[in-house]
Design a protein around this nucleic acid. Structure first.
Lengths: 221, 221
DNA sequence: TTCTTTCATCTTGTATGGTAGATCAAACTT
DNA sequence: AAGTTTGATCTACCATACAAGATGAAAGAA
């Protein structure tokens, strides 16, 4: 997002609150108020209020006029549709890249996968997560639609909350293997295989979601 | 978007400004200020400020800290990528609906097309535009991803600004003919034809964009 | 007891005053 | 004349005070 207000207090509050929400320090259903947060951060209500507005538009908060503001519960159907949107766009991206692969494509993807293997070997899950994201964003860049990835990124916050609930079960080995299949198909210009591999790669999240709903029913609508 | 603040002044300002921007009453590059708009609507600066924040997050305004706020110029690349997103999602939607068409599908789409023909015959272009939108949103509903359409709708605002610049050239006849082809393929469960028809239907906008950039260069980045 | 009503106390919404950064033109210096 | 500095005047940012709706518990009526 082109956040053009980085120096402001409101920006600091947005970043802090968003982090708290995604990492589940603020749990779905938690009630917060402008004065509450203002006091906690030692600022006035005004910048907090503006942060609330921004986070509400991102689907993380629900401002209830004259009542209170709550951390939005995760909507299973919303997550499902976010996945639908992501799969639609990423499939189209992979088609474009595979249809006319640029010269650099194979090398760039291979290097990213090598980095991922290094991070996996070092058990650095945070770095692996970053590299995983970078892999997908790079594909968007190669397709000339990096902005489209930003859109996915916005909606990925909901998914990230789910992901955070299931920390540690991420099998980076399998993800890397799937990345390799995708990269190979793309580099060869095999559109159909690339699309199928991407769908398989993204499809695994569905099971994860259902499991998570069972484990943490209070966090979902 | 689940705008949950309909009774407020800020909401009225958002609606009014968004309408002004989409209809080009406020032109790309126009400079506005909180006090300016506040005075014009007879309200205080506070709700105007909040409206600015919301519109900035929707990509219609650019708030420049300590300087001024301008109506964002239209980014040709942004419009192109919005089209990419829309096509990705709508193609996936049409696939889903065509793969397993519900019983009601054919009848629902036929009725919508009939309404469109009536609006076209009556030369009611505003009503036709609404029905055109409804056709696409209905497909999303039939695919069980109506929320995905809301996403398209948000990003469609940029396209709507372009569309408004080229008023009158909308050939509703051709659009209706294309809708018929789509509806028929979907009803028959012919996935490949439905997808191709949808791509062709959405693809026409590219030419329109290039023409518009030539005609109104000042409104684009 | 059970239902109704009142009212203290939450909340967000709005108005307004002051602050500091950004801009630009006029005055000044060289 | 050309470049520099100053200062008036914009702007958005923030703090604060007040208004009004929503809530829930306590007091009162049946």
């Amino acid at each position: 997002m082109g956040e053009a207000f980085e120096g402001t207090i409101a920006f600091r509050v947005v970043v802090a609150l968003r982090d708290d929400i995604v990492t589940m320090a603020l749990k779905p259903g938690d009630v917060i108020s402008e004065s509450d947060i203002a006091g906690r951060y030692g600022v006035s209500r005004q910048p907090v209020r503006e942060a609330f507005i921004r986070l509400a538009q991102q689907g993380l908060l629900l401002i209830r006029p004259k009542r209170a503001t709550v951390v939005k519960k995760i909507s299973p159907d919303g997550v499902r549709q976010s996945r639908f949107i992501r799969e639609s766009i990423e499939v189209e991206i992979i088609r474009r890249v595979a249809t006319a692969p640029a010269a650099e494509t194979a090398a760039v993807l291979a290097e990213l996968i090598a980095d991922q293997e290094a991070a996996s070997a070092a058990n650095d899950s945070r770095r692996f997560h970053k590299l995983d994201e970078l892999f997908h964003r790079t594909l968007a860049r190669l397709a000339g639609v990096e902005y489209a990835w930003q859109l996915i990124d916005d909606h990925k916050m909901q998914l990230d909350r789910v992901r955070y609930l299931t920390l540690g079960v991420s099998s980076s080995q399998r993800a890397i293997a799937e990345h390799k299949i995708i990269a190979e198909a793309v580099s060869k210009g095999d559109v159909a295989s690339a699309e199928a591999a991407m769908r398989a790669h993204l499809g695994r999240a569905e099971l994860l979601l259902n499991q998570t709903i069972e484990d943490f029913p209070d966090y979902f609508e």
